[in-house]
């Protein structure tokens, strides 16, 4: 174990700092996921509208956010807004904004696809029972949509958690940044620390994402 340099984790408050970094990463991604899930459902519902203006706008938004690398979006949100509007967003706020925008676009497209996959007859039998558009969406269409979406949404959430490793680029000290700091500080005395520390980071990311997959499996079983 000496060779992997795990001992640096127990020096001072290193492990606590690493966990603090994990918490920062989770905080950013979970707030963004929360926003994305709700806004994404609305977005997806909008995207199924036939209005050409709404269609064009949602498409433009979706493609822009999806085509641009998350790193570019982070730079735009952090440095760009300062330059253009004089806003002084904290790195974490900028990160939440970018992740929420990205998540909403991806979630919106998933919801759109799922909504369109619900057979027309489901809408019709709901309408024939006297349900109005809102009731039909809320009680008949949406629940089926969410069940169909579950695997892809879990995939999206874990991707969002893992992509938080980019926010160190705009100065947010999350888990990966803390890891790098620990490794740098021990460069001379424990040159192998990179192995142990990054291995720990790997395990921590896994532990963060695994319960979500388990939850998804449980839900899928219950809903099947």
């Amino acid at each position: 174990m000496q060779a992997l340099g795990f001992e640096v984790l127990w020096k001072g408050k290193n492990f606590a700092r690493l966990m603090g970094g994990l918490w920062v990463a989770l905080r950013i991604s979970l707030i963004a996921v929360g926003i994305s899930l709700v806004a994404g459902v609305l977005m997806g519902a909008l995207m199924t509208r036939k209005n050409p203006l709404i269609k064009a706008l949602t498409q433009l938004y979706l493609e822009t956010v999806r085509i641009m690398p998350q790193m570019v979006l982070l730079f735009l949100a952090f440095f760009g807004t300062t330059r253009w509007f004089g806003w002084n967003l904290s790195g974490e706020t900028a990160s939440v904004i970018v992740f929420a925008l990205w998540g909403t676009a991806e979630m919106g497209d998933l919801v759109r696809g799922a909504l369109e996959s619900i057979p027309r007859h489901q809408y019709e039998s709901a309408a024939a029972l006297g349900l109005d558009g809102k009731q039909s969406f809320l009680y008949v269409i949406l629940p089926q949509t969410l069940r169909r979406l579950l695997p892809q949404v879990i995939n999206l959430i874990t991707r969002m958690i893992k992509t938080t490793s980019l926010v160190l680029m705009i100065g947010v000290v999350e888990m990966l940044k803390v890891a790098q700091q620990i490794i740098e500080a021990n460069r001379m005395k424990v040159p192998n620390a990179a192995f142990g520390v990054y291995l720990t980071v790997l395990v921590l990311y896994f532990l963060a994402c695994w319960p979500i997959s388990l939850l998804a499996k449980a839900l899928e079983k219950r809903w099947s």
Binding site: S125, A127, L129, L131, V140
Partner: peptide
């Protein structure tokens, strides 16, 4: 329409239960 449709029950070929 929702009001009026309550007065008309319709059953489809493909059942369309939820």
């Amino acid at each position: 329409l929702p009001q009026l449709r309550q007065k008309v029950g319709m059953v489809f070929q493909s059942y369309e239960l939820f």
